[in-house]
């Protein structure tokens, strides 16, 4: 088998550059296999995050030939091998070293979200059809690729005003939980800035779990925010009852 050429970002917070490595191609090889080969043979200190190697944990996100991907699911035979394959860290997060970025901001956003809060005296029975809708959101493996491509974060850097697609998906999973009794629309509107999303669907395109982030999570949440805050009758009722919908 011939070799593939990789150009991999090596560097840290202070900058870096692309380094070239040759890797012998094996059948079915993925980019993460190549990174491991490089660690074992050429660059033992090459920093890479990974865990399951099967698309279930969302650790190995990077930009392969400029496209945000899980490296464990990116097959070499799906890439043009007559030219070097570039592997760079996710652009929207600060580089720590090589392909490892500082994703701690995501964990801070997550802390703002009130947890599942069952309605009082609820009966713990649910219909599979209701559950199906929410299970889609709960498939999220937190690879943060959606956060990485979202214009609001990637180009406009509104990390302080905006939660990002990952956390709209998480909130959709809570809001649409058949037994949840809390409203998170105020959080969505005020702290997580859902209004800043202009539904370009970039997040949906990169989701390795095929979650319909824009159509099934963000748009319905935007509608709930509109209903709660911009429909005068609903606004008045909400003020009176202090309850959701």
């Amino acid at each position: 088998m011939p070799d593939a050429t990789f150009k991999i970002f090596r560097g840290d917070r202070d900058g870096g550059e692309l380094y070239e490595y040759k890797v012998p191609i094996a059948p079915g090889m993925v980019v993460l296999d190549a990174l491991h080969y490089i660690q074992a043979h050429d660059a033992p200190d090459l920093a890479v995050r990974w865990n399951c190697k099967a698309g279930k944990c969302g650790s190995c996100s990077a930009e392969v030939n400029g496209r945000p991907r899980l490296t464990c699911k990116t097959r070499l035979d799906a890439l043009p091998l007559d030219q070097p394959i570039t592997v760079q860290p996710m652009k929207s997060f600060p580089v720590l070293k090589d392909l490892v970025t500082d994703v701690s901001w995501n964990y801070r956003v997550n802390k703002k979200i009130p947890p599942f809060t069952p309605r009082p005296n609820v009966e713990w029975k649910m219909d599979q059809r209701e559950v199906d809708r929410v299970q889609e959101f709960r498939k999220c493996i937190e690879c943060f690729l959606c956060q990485n491509v979202c214009h609001v974060l990637r180009d406009h850097e509104k990390q302080e005003q905006f939660g990002g697609p990952r956390f709209f998906v998480r909130i959709a999973g809570l809001e649409m939980h058949p037994l949840d009794g809390l409203s998170r629309t105020e959080l969505l509107k005020e702290e997580l800035g859902i209004g800043l999303c202009n539904i370009t669907k970039c997040c949906t395109e990169v989701c390795p779990e095929d979650i319909h982030i824009t159509d099934n999570a963000i748009i319905p949440l935007k509608e709930r925010v509109v209903d709660d805050f911009y429909d005068p009758v609903r606004w008045f009722l909400r003020k009176l009852s202090g309850k959701k919908h």
């Binding site: 947890p115 599942f116 069952p118 029975k125 219909d127 599979q128 559950v131 299970q135 809570l174």
Partner: peptide, 18 residues
């Protein structure tokens, strides 16, 4: 398991909702 469900886990359901 029931505790997990009360903390928000969503398991697949039987026809009668369990």
């Amino acid at each position: 398991v029931r505790e997990l469900e009360q903390w928000g886990a969503l398991f697949d359901r039987t026809a009668d909702g369990n």
